[in-house]
């Protein structure tokens, strides 16, 4: 009997050995190697080609820059804020250049917009739509989660707000140096606090205080420039959050983008 057990064990061991040998051969195949190329292929050249193909020069160029809402996250159609734009504006075909990137904060916006390959589109853009600040304001929410006392007058909030406004100033100056009369539209924030479940840490009335203060300061800033506009959005989502906001409570749904986009399209 025990002889058979020994034979059986030997049999299993042999099969396993073959299996392991096969695995070892493949490990050699897929083992991490020294990185062959560290230099990323230049994304600027890519854009150059894209732009040539699209023939941006004779079209009505709308640039969208900023965070995930600019990119259109949550919208299945992929058009995002551009969803309701007419195909032609002033007998010129509409062209949308979307630079949105998830999670962008205001300090990164300048870097996004000041890239040399965007120089030309910036000069030609008729409209520049910015969606920024939501991720900055979420930092305030995290401070509240860490137990900081946050009010519209607290140092921490003021610090973040003033940094944000400084960054906006730089971005606007940069754009204006290249394009005197393009329209700049900044999308207001609706409720970046909703998703954080922080009502225990930051009572709802304080959340609104901060949100409205943020939007108000942004609007004051935008109004310094005659061709700039602050677009309020809080009202759009207040009664319709179930339909217009996706499950993460931050990004609009396709319908949400449509109402936002309608509001922008009405401005032209």
């Amino acid at each position: 009997m025990i002889k058979y057990v020994w034979k059986f064990i030997l049999f299993i061991v042999l099969i396993t050995a073959v299996w392991i040998a096969y695995g070892m051969m493949n490990v050699y195949e897929y083992a991490p190697r020294e990185g062959a190329s560290q230099i990323e292929p230049d994304p600027l050249q890519q854009t150059e080609i894209d732009r040539e193909n699209k023939g941006i020069d004779d079209s009505y160029l709308i640039m969208i820059a900023g965070d995930s809402i600019a990119r259109g996250r949550g919208d299945q159609s992929g058009l995002g804020l551009a969803i309701s734009f007419p195909e032609e504006i002033n007998q010129r075909p509409t062209e949308v250049l979307n630079l949105g990137a998830d999670g962008l904060v205001s300090s990164e916006l300048y870097g996004m917009i000041s890239r040399p390959d965007l120089e030309e589109p910036l000069q030609n853009a008729e409209v520049i739509i910015l969606s920024i600040g939501g991720n900055d304001l979420r930092r305030v929410a995290f401070l509240a989660l860490q137990g900081e006392e946050i009010t519209p007058n607290s140092m921490e909030y003021r610090e973040i707000l003033s940094q944000y406004l400084e960054q906006l100033q730089e971005v606007r100056d940069y754009i204006r140096n290249r394009n005197q009369d393009t329209r700049i539209i900044l999308i207001g924030l609706f409720n970046p606090f909703e998703a954080e479940e922080i009502s225990d840490y930051l009572p709802r009335d304080l959340q609104l205080d901060i949100l409205f203060d943020w939007n108000y300061q942004t609007q004051l800033f935008m109004e310094q420039d005659p061709m700039s506009l602050f677009l309020p959005t809080y009202d759009l989502f207040k009664w319709n959050s179930a339909e217009y906001l996706s499950f993460d409570l931050i990004h609009p749904t396709q319908m949400g983008y449509r109402v936002l986009s309608d509001r922008i399209a009405d401005l032209f």
């Binding site: 392991i20 096969y22 695995g23 493949n26 990185g35």
Partner: peptide, 20 residues
């Protein structure tokens, strides 16, 4: 920059070989 994907059975074979 060179990541690929392998079927899970092959991956398991590899990690059991390393574990051996």
């Amino acid at each position: 920059d060179q990541v690929t994907s392998v079927p899970q059975w092959l991956y398991i074979t590899m990690i059991y070989a390393l574990a051996w």
